[in-house]
């Protein structure tokens, strides 16, 4: 099973964002999409999720174009964690998590088997059992992000798309969230594609990094291959120092004040 993006073109308000991006995503892998602001990372993720259509190109799941797969059928296989998380609605934690069962329900809202154990498990894995009757608008941003992830768990997908899941979270929540995702990914053999702003987090969790720059893939491969100071400087216009993580050995970037490179076209 795999997900294939073929020559994806996309525009945003008339301006080209993606110029023929192609990539094959395989199951049981964690992909990190990195790149500067406004480069079309989220646009690519929206297209991979099947919600937005590319202006040209095809995304297919096992050879079948996702535009041909009906909404609920697709949602049983593919789940998305939206950028910005869940809004502060008046539903309780448990009600929102249970909404993840929607793609498994018939039009009367019934299911073939009782979903309660699935919901209970997701609540306990995410440490939400005690918060389950609280309303969403009474929770903090970090707690809401855990609710969003629990909702994805009960959706029971094979493919997980995460759009900047750690933005606005403190470092404790960032590590907690990505640890949970990775444990889940390894247990079920999921395909995870995450847009990540933080390059060091991306290098620690992803099996493969895809660097988007100027509408196409500037570099792709293992974190060691992509986290090359020259590639990073070319994309972000700043010189960095690469070191190895003392425990895991993952490549980690150190920033240098005043090290803006002269030869790029970036202006701040």
């Amino acid at each position: 099973m795999s997900m294939l993006a073929e020559k994806i073109w996309a525009e945003r308000q008339g301006a080209p964002v993606l110029n023929g991006v192609s990539y094959e995503f395989r199951m049981n892998r964690f992909y990190g999409i990195i790149g500067p602001n406004g480069v079309g990372k989220s646009t690519l993720l929206h297209i991979l999720s099947g919600v937005d259509a590319p202006s040209r190109g095809v995304v297919s799941l096992d050879g079948q174009p996702i535009s041909d797969i009906a909404g609920k059928t697709l949602a049983r296989r593919l789940a998305v964690l939206q950028q910005g998380g869940l809004p502060a609605v008046g539903f309780s934690v448990r009600e929102v998590v249970a909404m993840g069962r929607f793609p498994h329900q018939n039009w009367l809202g019934g299911e073939a088997s009782d979903p309660e154990p699935i919901i209970e498990e997701a609540l306990s894995v995410m440490g939400l059992a005690e918060l389950q009757n609280r309303k969403l608008h009474q929770l903090s941003g970090g707690e809401r992000q855990r609710v969003a992830l629990a909702k994805l768990m009960v959706q029971q997908p094979d493919i997980l798309l995460l759009d900047e899941p750690t933005t606005y979270l403190d470092i404790g929540y960032q590590i907690g969230l990505l640890d949970t995702v990775r444990a889940w990914q390894q247990e079920k053999g999921l395909l995870v594609i995450a847009v990540l702003h933080d390059l060091n987090l991306a290098a620690m969790y992803a099996d493969e990094l895809i660097a988007l720059h100027k509408g196409s893939i500037a570099a792709a491969g293992t974190p060691e291959e992509v986290m090359d100071p020259l590639i990073i400087e070319d994309m972000y216009g700043t010189r960095t120092i690469m070191i190895k993580h003392p425990v895991s050995g993952a490549p980690q970037l150190m920033l240098q004040p005043g090290a803006r490179s002269g030869h790029t076209d970036r202006r701040v």
């Binding site: 909404g71 949602a75 939206q82 869940l86 929607f102």
Partner: peptide
């Protein structure tokens, strides 16, 4: 009534609803 659960998902936002398979 048949669309009432879809309306619940709408309250999370159109994208959330679409990702859960709501047309």
């Amino acid at each position: 009534l048949a669309y009432s659960q879809a309306l619940n998902l709408f309250s999370l936002g159109e994208r959330h609803a679409a990702n859960l398979g709501v047309r």
